[in-house]
Write a protein that binds this DNA or RNA. Structure first.
Lengths: 254, 254
DNA sequence: ACCTCGGTTGCGTATGTTGCAACGGACGTT
DNA sequence: AACGTCCGTTGCAACATACGCAACCGAGGT
């Protein structure tokens, strides 16, 4: 582990929230400000940070650049785009596209809902596997060995009264998800929001990502949410076809 | 300058293009692979890179995350969004939003054109000041001192037969831009593309960014492009109003 | 004109980082 | 099945590098 690199990356996350001064940053990571200055200068020459005026530092454009390229890498994102945009347009709700990464869920695309009550999330944000609909879909699609391994590592911390808290209950839920072909998050992650999610498949039926509809409970009750399942599944199947899925097996994950 | 940080950031740019193996990366920056391994591990714990399979490394999700936050910072982007989306919808051409940063132009937003011939660009990408319409708008809006300083640092390298190659010609062009309130790039950057750009203003009339329409010459000749000026200006004025511009002085930059 | 606050610089030292060389696991080949 | 190759991985010793320090400087505010 490289100390200076570690510090520099920590600086970047620190700058994400808001522009900061040298001293603030030095304090934050607990080193001398001259050290921070040198790191910032290196980051600056690579355009990872930029100076605002004389004292403030903020994130730079290299981040956009790399991120954009990293996103272009993820083909699902492009191939699923139109189907999900359509779903978003038809339902007016927030749509997320997420993939599994290293014990968590990562949002790789988002289509903002039209309602004033919005969910706080962001492309690149990470979320837990055990209390999100997309997480369930992604884990349910894994091979039994991988799934067992992943589940064994999950920390089933409580987010809401509905959060699943045991591996046993989670595995039961996964079986249900695999059987039905979609997953539900009944306010298990955020108190006021519930979601449904379904898989986006690629060649050979492999699950590339999961797409979800997130709706504030005040807008739509549980039954109303379930009423959106057919539309969600239709959209994810369309996205799957665009992503190279040729199979036609109905629903079921395996 | 921090050596290890510098190397790590170089690694990231190297990974942008395509996933690479440890050895490839080591070769690329000319260090021992164990060194690269340690850097990558640090980058990995911060989610700046992720491993694909056992051997390949690619960019990770922290990049999206930071970039997204950095973009949210730039208010112009949000405030100009609807006006530019409308312009894009009406014209079907590619729209860019760009701001000045450190001797270059940085694209901070992009609306893809509907035509099959597309321009290669990307959010976060940088471009020169002297051969882009957005560059001209941004430089023309600077105070005389700042402008003189910036112009003196420009490297007037040639991109196409039309590229402006002397400070004198460029300054003459800037005066024209300031007078008309918009700028033209007559295939000075890319041989087959020409653009027009106009400023997006904020409170007090300060220029926050420049918006441009880029059109392949095969789709629209010079006169056709100039015909789009009123629409562009209408859109940038709308964007300016959303960005806090209260002035009503017509056109002119100062 | 003084004071404070924050960024900047040069320097000696200790520490973190480096390259080396040897290890080990995964594939592919004969 | 055994061998060989290809990569990623580890421990170690040497050294370069990044570190903290303390003094300097410039801008704003009082």
């Amino acid at each position: 582990m490289s100390q200076s690199l570690d510090r520099a990356l920590t600086l970047l996350s620190g700058l994400a929230r808001e522009p900061k001064t040298l001293d603030q940053l030095a304090e934050e990571i607990g080193v001398h400000k001259s050290t921070v200055l040198r790191l910032l200068r290196t980051l600056e020459t690579h355009h990872f940070v930029r100076r605002e005026g004389q004292r403030y530092y903020r994130l730079g454009s290299a981040l956009f650049d790399l991120a954009q390229q990293a996103l272009e890498d993820r083909d699902v994102r492009r191939t699923a785009q139109s189907a999900l945009a359509g779903l978003n347009a038809r339902t007016g709700h927030t749509i997320h596209l997420a993939s599994y990464e290293d014990g968590e869920v990562v949002y790789i695309d988002k289509f903002e809902g039209r309602h004033s009550v919005r969910m706080y999330s962001r492309i690149g944000k990470r979320a837990p596997l055990h209390c999100t609909a997309v997480g369930k879909v992604l884990v349910a699609a894994m091979t039994p060995e991988k799934q067992a391994d992943v589940v064994s590592r999950i920390d089933f911390f409580v987010r809401t009264p509905n959060t699943i808290t045991t591996p046993e209950a989670y595995e039961k839920e996964l079986a249900l998800v695999a059987d039905r072909g979609y997953a539900v998050d009944n306010a298990e992650h955020e108190d006021f929001i519930h979601c449904i999610a379904a898989p986006v498949r690629g060649p050979g039926g492999v699950v590339l990502a999961a797409a979800s509809i997130s709706v504030p409970k005040v807008l739509l009750d549980y039954d109303g949410l379930m009423g959106l399942v057919p539309e969600l599944v239709a959209a994810t199947e369309e996205a799957s076809v665009h992503s190279g899925w040729t199979g036609n097996r109905k629903g079921k994950l395996e």
